[in-house]
Amino acid sequence: TRVETATETAWISLVTALHLVLGLSAVLGLLLLRWQFPAHYRRLRHALW
């Protein structure tokens, strides 16, 4: 049971790290898009909202 718990903890930390990385890359990508294509971003936002 001790090994299982350790594996579970490792998986949880791995998944958390993955989610953090994905979230950060998504935010960075959005910022980059907004910085590179302001007109396109505004049009996209206008279409979405």
Rank of each mutant, 00 (worst) to 15 (best):
T1Q: 13
T1K: 12
T1R: 13
T1E: 09
R2Y: 12
R2S: 12
R2N: 08
R2M: 15
V3Q: 01
V3P: 01
E4T: 09
E4R: 09
E4C: 10
T5R: 02
T5F: 02
T5Q: 00
T5A: 00
T5E: 00
T5G: 00
A6T: 14
A6M: 14
T7G: 11
T7K: 12
T7L: 10
E8A: 05
E8N: 04
T9S: 14
T9N: 13
A10D: 13
A10N: 13
A10R: 11
A10G: 13
W11L: 10
W11F: 12
W11N: 04
I12C: 10
S13E: 05
S13N: 10
S13I: 11
S13R: 13
L14F: 01
L14N: 02
V15P: 00
V15G: 02
V15N: 05
T16K: 03
T16E: 00
A17Y: 00
A17H: 01
L18R: 02
L18H: 04
L18I: 07
L18Q: 04
L18V: 08
H19N: 04
H19K: 04
L20V: 13
L20E: 02
L20A: 14
L20G: 12
V21P: 01
V21R: 01
G23R: 01
G23Y: 06
G23N: 06
L24D: 02
L24Y: 01
S25V: 10
S25C: 15
S25T: 12
S25D: 02
S25Y: 05
S25I: 06
S25L: 13
A26N: 02
A26D: 00
A26Q: 00
V27Q: 03
V27R: 03
L28F: 09
G29Q: 01
G29V: 14
G29D: 05
L30V: 09
L30I: 12
L30G: 10
L31M: 10
L31K: 02
L32S: 07
L32V: 14
L32Q: 02
L32N: 02
L32W: 06
L33Y: 08
L33T: 04
L33F: 06
W35K: 15
W35H: 15
Q36E: 08
Q36W: 13
Q36C: 08
Q36F: 06
Q36D: 01
F37V: 07
P38R: 14
P38C: 05
P38T: 07
A39K: 12
A39L: 13
H40R: 10
H40M: 10
Y41H: 07
Y41W: 13
R42L: 10
R42Q: 14
R42M: 08
R43L: 07
L44R: 03
L44C: 08
R45W: 04
H46P: 05
H46E: 11
H46W: 03
H46L: 09
H46M: 09
A47V: 08
A47W: 06
A47S: 08
L48M: 13
L48Q: 02
W49T: 01
W49K: 03
